[in-house]
Design a protein around this nucleic acid. Structure first.
Length: 290
DNA sequence: AGCAGCGTCCGGCCGC
DNA sequence: TGCGGCCGGACGCTG
């Protein structure tokens, strides 16, 4: 389940082996081709398969960056810049290999959906077991408004003020704090794992209304989220279920998690509880979190 | 106009 | 061993 730290790890490992290379041609899996043919938006979004294939041919990858949980491939063709935006969804993964057989893990090898054949011979491969991910080619972020509506990067200077201001709007003030911090319009890149961890560290019940937390505590909560995201980046991300970086390496952050997926509170030993908030499982300690 | 709530995209896994 | 139900980021649509 890639959240910001996992996506950061992908960008860091993918950039050095893909930047500077040129895409010769593109292959899309039969699964995706037929899904798109019957009108579904399958992985390659906002464009027909044929157009994606012809648009991507000849693209040179200039650089990679991360924005929230999105990977941005900065590309150009005939000196015209484009952005190839990649979201990993639940189970997306990138590989740089010579042949598909080099993808060692069978479950990824079985679900290869987009293969970019590079001019220098290698392959840049997108695999996605559940197909919740997406690839979207745009001229610029403004071509796809949701990209402009994302909260600032959590490590940027304006992120804290953005968070505090959003908490005070009528839309968010009465919502559960967990729903608020997981909303990409409020904080970028904080998914279920890190929201769960930060609320546990802060001893805040996930269902508490955002408006019923003092400004001081909200500032501390924000800093806790930033800290846990940075700790996870340093640890190479959390390898829960299907996340690997492009070298097939698993991160170690999952070993440092204190509440996500736990049956008992590591602090007091109380059996944890779980409730649904905004459709997502939210684990907490009923004794420590209020 | 803006928002809440639901549908959508799926394979894997769990429990019966 | 077979199978129905559940899970989940984030957008898009509906009412």
């Amino acid at each position: 389940m890639p959240e910001l730290p996992e996506v950061e790890g992908v960008v860091r490992s993918l950039a050095p082996v893909s930047a500077g290379r040129t895409i010769l041609s593109v292959k899309i899996s039969e699964t995706v081709l037929s899904a798109k043919q019957i009108g579904k938006e399958a992985i390659v979004k906002g464009i027909t398969s044929e157009d994606f294939i012809s648009e991507m041919a000849g693209m040179k990858i200039l650089a990679l960056s991360r924005r929230s949980k999105y990977i941005y491939f900065h590309v150009e063709r005939d000196e015209e810049p484009y952005l190839l935006v990649s979201h990993l969804g639940m189970t997306g993964a990138w590989f740089v290999v010579d042949t598909l057989d080099d993808i060692k893990e069978e479950r990824f090898r079985r679900h290869v959906h987009v293969t970019f054949e590079m001019a220098d011979g290698g392959l840049l491969v997108y695999s996605d077991i559940r197909r919740f991910g997406e690839l979207r080619l745009v001229k610029a972020e403004s071509d796809y408004p949701p990209l402009l509506e994302m909260a600032p990067e959590p490590f940027s200077e304006e992120a804290l003020h953005h968070f505090l201001a959003m908490c005070e709007t009528p839309k968010y003030a009465r919502k559960p704090i967990k729903e608020v911090i997981m909303d990409g319009h409020v904080i970028s890149g904080c998914g279920n794992i890190y929201a769960t961890e930060a609320l546990y560290t802060m001893k805040i019940h996930p269902n508490r209304s955002a408006g019923r937390i003092s400004k001081e505590r909200k500032i501390e909560l924000f800093q806790t989220i930033v800290d846990v995201l940075q700790e996870s980046i340093r640890a190479g991300g959390s390898s829960i279920s299907d996340y690997r970086n492009i070298n097939g390496e698993a991160g170690t952050m999952q070993e440092r998690l204190k509440m996500y997926g736990k049956k008992f509170c590591p602090g007091c030993g109380t059996r944890t509880k779980s409730l649904k908030i905004a459709g997502r499982t939210s684990v907490y300690c009923p004794s420590c979190q209020h």
